[in-house]
Simulated assay, not measured.
Amino acid sequence: MSAPDGPTGLRLTVVGCSGSYPGPDSAASCYLLEAPDGHGGTTRVVLDLGSGAIGPLQRHVDPRALDAVLLSHLHADHCLDLMGLYVLQRHHPDGPSGRRVPVWGPTGTAARLARGYDLTEPDAMSAELDVREWQPGRTVDVGALRVTPFAVRHPVEAYAVRVVWTDPAGGDHVLVYSGDTDTCDGLDAAATGADLLLCEAAFVDGRDEVRGIHLTGRRAGEVAARAGVARLLLTHVPAWNDPGAAAVEAGEVFGGPTVTAAPGQVHHV
């Protein structure tokens, strides 16, 4: 495919943003990042590939051509549609693509994906997917992007992901994805100085009092304010929530531009 239309640079397309399960208007978590690679091509990765996302993703890119899938954690609403990518890789009538799609994720990602397709060997998808495990704080290069995972606060091993693209004309462009998390030092460190913070806000102040699972809109706004981010993009809002409530909460504590994610949105970083 050709390079992204519009301004050159790091571009985020919201593929799916529904929290915890696909909603009537959105797949679960999936975000396409595209950036020029400096050689006339484009680096394309997705942040998460949650339930329902493989369908709308195909409107934007051939999933078999992705440079990587970057998983925040292994809950179904963030990784389950890797089953579909496996099927595309293995059974497409054009034959195998000739390359394994790299997948970065938490400890045990390969075995988790194999169980999802009822395969008995933990490396059963290794011919189709090149699965690698995050090391907290260790940066990996994916084409034109530098990607660093930060351990965050969730009931399972989970990461915020900091993505940096360096403009050949000068300057870094930084996008940070919170994954699923409550307030924690790892999220603050990941988000520091980000141009765009893509931050979950699944909980609602006054309704969801349990801690250690998700952020409210207010807590997401507090993270953005502490970290000095330029823009806040709220996501992972379940279909049972008022979609605008999180932005109202965030706006009470964060003075920068705040938007609630919706499928098909494009944000230039």
Rank of each mutant, 00 (worst) to 15 (best):
158 A>Q: 09
200 E>A: 13
136 P>R: 06
203 F>C: 14
92 H>T: 09
107 T>L: 13
54 I>M: 13
199 C>L: 10
6 G>L: 01
104 W>K: 00
251 G>R: 00
249 E>H: 05
225 A>D: 12
141 D>A: 15
96 P>T: 11
208 D>M: 06
201 A>V: 06
227 A>C: 06
2 S>V: 14
106 P>W: 07
133 E>Q: 12
241 N>T: 07
120 T>A: 14
20 S>V: 10
249 E>L: 03
9 G>W: 14
80 L>Q: 13
204 V>S: 09
34 E>W: 04
93 P>V: 09
25 D>A: 10
154 H>N: 08
117 Y>W: 13
204 V>P: 00
83 M>G: 13
174 V>D: 12
165 W>P: 02
27 A>L: 10
219 R>N: 11
130 D>G: 04
258 T>N: 05
90 R>E: 15
265 Q>H: 12
178 S>V: 12
51 S>E: 14
219 R>P: 05
118 D>G: 00
146 R>W: 07
89 Q>G: 08
196 L>Q: 02
146 R>D: 08
209 E>R: 14
102 P>G: 08
40 G>W: 02
254 F>Y: 14
105 G>Q: 06
8 T>M: 02
54 I>D: 05
176 V>S: 08
228 G>L: 01
257 P>Y: 04
224 A>W: 07
45 V>Y: 05
218 R>G: 02
133 E>M: 02
122 P>R: 04
108 G>Y: 03
85 L>A: 05
241 N>C: 14
268 H>C: 12
50 G>Y: 02
124 A>P: 06
48 D>S: 09
120 T>Q: 15
113 L>I: 15
199 C>E: 04
129 L>R: 01
232 L>N: 05
14 V>S: 09
170 G>H: 11
45 V>Q: 10
50 G>C: 11
202 A>M: 05
49 L>S: 04
39 H>P: 04
212 G>S: 03
216 T>K: 02
148 T>P: 03
123 D>A: 08
153 R>N: 11
244 G>L: 03
269 V>L: 15
214 H>A: 10
119 L>P: 01
265 Q>V: 03
252 E>F: 00
19 G>S: 08
27 A>N: 05
47 L>N: 11
78 H>L: 07
234 L>E: 01
121 E>I: 00
103 V>G: 03
24 P>E: 10
24 P>F: 11
10 L>N: 05
67 D>G: 15
79 C>K: 00
176 V>K: 01
173 H>T: 13
228 G>I: 01
84 G>E: 11
149 P>W: 08
86 Y>R: 04
46 V>G: 11
78 H>G: 09
112 R>E: 15
256 G>W: 05
73 H>N: 15
217 G>T: 13
96 P>C: 09
20 S>C: 08
90 R>F: 11
185 D>M: 07
247 A>F: 00
159 Y>K: 03
225 A>L: 10
217 G>V: 09
51 S>D: 11
116 G>I: 01
182 D>T: 01
38 G>V: 11
161 V>N: 03
239 A>D: 15
52 G>Q: 01
258 T>S: 07
211 R>H: 12
179 G>S: 11
122 P>D: 10
